[in-house]
Design a protein around this nucleic acid. Structure first.
Lengths: 225, 225
DNA sequence: TAGTATTCGATTTTCGAAGATCGAAGAAAG
DNA sequence: CTTTCTTCGATCTTCGAAAATCGAATACTA
């Protein structure tokens, strides 16, 4: 039902995404096409198509005849991306809230629970996935596909970094608490409070990412593994 | 200086974009990979990579094992896209205006003049290009690459339709007049007026596009050429 | 020694063809 | 006459290998 990979490039794409979330591919890393291809038992052409998608999403950087690299973001990038998320998600949330029905709330509750369970199990990949489900359950109002596409793009852009900061237990706790407050605001149909909670949730994440980036800058050996 | 196609897929991408702007590829049309490839004297793999880019941009739709088609938008899509443009361009314009220097204004003036010249010559492709230069000269403030990327995505999504409505002379006149008012607002450093002018400029374009779409719906034979 | 040219290995880039899949036209059955 | 099944042609899909390119290590010059 979950629509597995229909084509070989899609298969390669999922593999690369998984590698990013799992932290196997870290910002700045080089991605060797041949290596990925033989790892998956597919041709480089398929890997290349997958990389083209990731390049459009801004997750990898492409230097013609030099290769593909996992995108590196600096603090300015992060702040711009989170600013854009604020602008777009605020609009999406205000449009979605009046239409959010019981099923929506239920999906959010389930995702929040999955988040907490993944946090307990220290399963970063599962938590990232559940976290996404939580937020998109609210924002993915039917009839606004382009809005969701853009928001998803912004989420994807910072995914490699989110994968890093989710390893910190105190961030997880903070995140779970924020989810509860967001859930309450939705249940109360309080748009202003919802927007405020989303803002501060984002602000906390941004602060954590800033810290990660500060460390990475202080320890450039990270890229040279 | 204009950075021609560095790679074969980029060459194919430019070719396809040109075909869209020129109206050779219309919404709903099927894109035969082999045909494009032999036309350009390149392999299908390269064409495929170019199509992957266009798919990510939302300009073509991909049905696995069926092929690629030029994306068709309905009125709801257009309204959502223009709503998103309003949200993002308003923010971009307000951030860019204080930083707009004499060179920026000069670039805008030159682009506006090129727009007028292209309108006189009835050169749709040139006018579309100059129109883009005009708007992005203002919005493309240094240090906000992600904002521009998103705005560009939204522009690209409606490009096939813009190519259609620019054939109407009265729309061109209206558009040129709007450019003058926008230019004046920028020269006066009046942010509120600038935003208002941009809004109404967009609203006029949306109205024209709605009309185009209405015709297309009334004459479905359009797609079956 | 510092700087520059050159070769070499690794990697990307591009192609052409074989294999897989789909939609449509036509045949057979009810 | 309608429906279902089958075959066929067109097209997409994927591959493996040849060709082009780049960076780094090496050799050379001043």
């Amino acid at each position: 039902m979950t629509a597995g990979p229909q084509t070989t490039p899609q298969h390669a794409l999922e593999h690369l995404r998984r590698a990013v979330v799992a932290g196997e591919l870290r910002p700045g890393d080089r991605i060797r096409q041949e290596e990925v291809a033989s790892e998956l038992g597919v041709s480089v052409a398929s890997v290349r198509e997958a990389l083209t998608v990731l390049e459009q999403e801004g997750q990898v950087r492409y230097a013609p005849r030099r290769g593909y690299f996992v995108a590196e973001l600096d603090v300015a990038d992060l702040e711009e991306i989170y600013d854009l998320r604020r602008v777009l998600e605020t609009r999406a949330a205000r449009l979605a809230l009046p239409r959010a029905d019981a099923a929506t709330l239920e999906r959010m509750r389930a995702a929040a629970a999955a988040c907490a369970a993944a946090a307990d199990a220290a399963d970063i990949a599962a938590e990232l996935d559940a976290n996404r489900r939580f937020h998109f359950a609210l924002l993915d109002a039917p009839g606004r596909p382009h809005t969701i596409r853009l928001i998803r793009l912004l989420w994807d852009a910072t995914e490699p970094y989110r994968a890093l900061y989710y390893s910190a237990p105190e961030e997880r706790r903070r995140s779970l608490a924020a989810h509860e407050r967001i859930l309450a605001a939705v249940a109360d149909r309080d748009a202003d409070r919802l927007v405020t909670e989303l803002d501060s949730h984002r602000e906390e994440a941004l602060a954590a990412l800033r810290a990660i980036l500060g460390e990475a800058a202080a320890v450039p050996a990270l890229a040279g593994a």
